[in-house]
């Protein structure tokens, strides 16, 4: 279980996260919604230890990662996988080497077992037979799926998705959403996904949190999102430029 308590993050004088409190329960997919620049990615990067929060605690399996030593943090990180917004595959390595990278670093599998696991993971994301290709040979959707294969290869307990469907066509977005559900059901992973894709969020989420100006303004199930009177959530769900969420525009229709 992941427990976030009073989490704040500031860059200089700019406060991005203001004392967040929430939990991600074991085996669930929690989607964090919010417009661009509301601190979703900062929140995710703080949880995996890529950024240090200004204040607050992040409890993962009972250990506060903001206070533990680098060795303890390394042990906790073995249980976490991160799927980056732009996939972040290593350009100089083949797909096979990319997927095997975490396995080699984080597990004691033999070379034969590693090759077998790589094949298994690529097949799970529907990309069997592309082992020898380089990331530059792949489409955006394929890169995302290879990134997911690289993450699930070492069987993490938690998977963090940073805008998993951004930049993909609607069909590929749906494929990725299905894949996230498949991984939750088959690998029993706890997932945190930040997104502003309402369709995908609705499909994959067990619960949804909405961030606005660094604060949580809503927490509930997808059904509760549909039924809420919260004006901020309503505007975000409808995708309207008119409402409490200030949209930057310099023209009038």
């Amino acid at each position: 279980m992941i427990k976030i308590r009073n989490l704040s993050k500031s860059f200089g004088n700019k406060r991005v996260l203001s004392g967040l409190n929430f939990e991600a329960r074991d085996g669930e997919t929690l989607v964090i919604l919010g417009s661009s620049g509301t601190g979703k990615s900062v929140l995710l990067k703080s949880i995996v230890g890529l950024m240090k929060p200004t204040n607050g605690s992040i409890m993962i399996n009972g250990a506060d990662i903001t206070k533990c030593s680098s060795m303890e943090l390394h042990e906790i990180q073995k249980k976490m996988g991160y799927v980056f917004q732009e996939a972040a595959l290593f350009d100089s390595l083949t797909v096979e080497e990319n997927v095997a990278f975490g396995l080699t670093a984080l597990s004691d599998l033999s070379k034969k077992e590693t090759t077998k696991r790589v094949e298994e993971c690529l097949s799970m994301v529907g990309l069997k037979g592309i082992e020898k290709l380089k990331p530059s040979d792949l489409s955006g959707g394929m890169k995302k799926r290879v990134a997911i294969a690289r993450t699930i290869a070492y069987r993490p307990q938690y998977i963090f998705y940073d805008e998993p469907t951004t930049g993909l066509d609607p069909i590929m977005s749906d494929v990725i959403s299905d894949l996230i559900i498949y991984l939750r059901d088959n690998l029993k992973v706890t997932s945190l996904a930040v997104s502003h894709d309402m369709k995908s969020a609705h499909k994959i989420a067990d619960r949804i949190i909405m961030l606005y100006k660094g604060d949580i303004v809503f927490e509930g199930t997808p059904k509760e999102v549909d039924e809420t009177d919260n004006a901020i959530v309503r505007q975000f769900v409808s995708g309207s430029s008119q409402g409490p969420i200030e949209a930057e525009r310099t023209f009038q229709l």
């Binding site: 390394h74 990180q77 972040a88």
Partner: peptide
Amino acid sequence: GTMKVTEQIDALYTLGT
């Protein structure tokens, strides 16, 4: 530098390296 701006350095870190 390219690895840094394309988050590959962060990816290394999350993959235990």
